[in-house]
Write a protein that binds this DNA or RNA. Sequence first.
DNA 1: GAGTGGTCTAGACCACCAA
DNA 2: TGGTGGTCTAGACCACTCC
Lengths: 238, 238
Amino acid sequence: MRDHAPRAVTAICAALEEQMEHGLLLAGAKLPAERQLSELFDTTRITLRDALVQLEARGLVYREDRRGWFVSPPRLTYELNERSHFHAMVRAQGRLPHTELLSAQAIPAPAVVCDRLGLAPLSQVIRICRRRRIDGRLVLYVEHYLNPAYFPGVLEHDLSQPLTELYAHAYGIAYGQVRFEMLPTALPLEAAGALKVSAGSPGLRITRINHDSRGRLIDCDLEYWRHDAIRVVTTVSP
Amino acid sequence: MRDHAPRAVTAICAALEEQMEHGLLLAGAKLPAERQLSELFDTTRITLRDALVQLEARGLVYREDRRGWFVSPPRLTYELNERSHFHAMVRAQGRLPHTELLSAQAIPAPAVVCDRLGLAPLSQVIRICRRRRIDGRLVLYVEHYLNPAYFPGVLEHDLSQPLTELYAHAYGIAYGQVRFEMLPTALPLEAAGALKVSAGSPGLRITRINHDSRGRLIDCDLEYWRHDAIRVVTTVSP
DNA sequence: GAGTGGTCTAGACCACCAA
DNA sequence: TGGTGGTCTAGACCACTCC
């Protein structure tokens, strides 16, 4: 409120941070109930929630819809230059990956996808929706759109495995040039639902447009990450 | 509240969005006062603010600290592979760049900077803090850290010009390999103050570690972008 | 069924910006 | 100086989770 007497929210944030730094609240730990915390800090639930939302914005805590607040685990480093897939990347960082298939079907291509994949209007594409976890925590919702011309019968395969490997083994296709776009935004309804977070929580949208090693445009994806789950890294050479 | 009767917040968001889509609220326009809007939507200020914060998270509106809410202009596309600087990039997208020098001095290198620049502990570095605008809107707070060995007398120059050009003209140094790290997080106090946004607003932190064309580690920067001002794009080849 | 988070109401005071 | 946004209080009801 005043400059010399920090706001209540700031004080609460500082107190919680201090606990986390000193290892009293470990990554993944559940915080006490909001009402309990608001009593502890002698304030209202609204104010306490403001503080938690601040910490959430900074990536220190996160919430699971209607389940409560938890201490955020460290971010995954997403190295764009490495040609590896989610599972390899997560495991290489000593953590446990998991992928769950949500849906897979041929649909009329949305306009954005036609544009990205260079398809004619009203083409069909194969859409694969999945969600992924790191150490059990939901962190990523992905929609893949495949150009069906290159992947006949792809829906018959096990689609919870890394697509990279499926492409290689079943179709002899490997990724070549990849175009990335990254954009901080709120998670849209679809992604928020799949990740079990309250709609509108902050997220990072990453879109990829993938060519194969022969330069053909083979698929694109739309990834929605929890904003605090990831650190993107890349090296650019002249 | 109920699934079939959308929440008040959702309804307000939808109404404002609709106005923006139909060009009744143009980019940069100031929204009416919160109290006025809350009356218009027949709700409390708290609820109305929730809605605005949602739209802010999605990058549709933004606020200037204590000045009100405004409609967000389109994002700047930050193409990592292009070796151009802020001014060139902004102008190339038909917009007006502006850079303001906040401070420039030699200081004892913070630990992080020692690490990034490969300096011995307790080395000196030159720190240059600046803030930048697009079409008059504050969007970026940057701290540059230069290895003083390569830039004797750099503080004597005009530091509101692009450093890239200063490096080239005064020192014959050009960028070579650049390492980027991107991380969605809240704006820290320093950046929030410089950008005149309320502390804790969402932002995108980009750090760069820059080598010159001969592979020497010459400087690094710490950029804090308004989260809704930017879209990062890059192409990765095998 | 108890307790939780999600949502909302109806106010209040303050510091700061603009006039 | 008036009005603005920033912050905070003290409640309330609901849907959902978890026991």
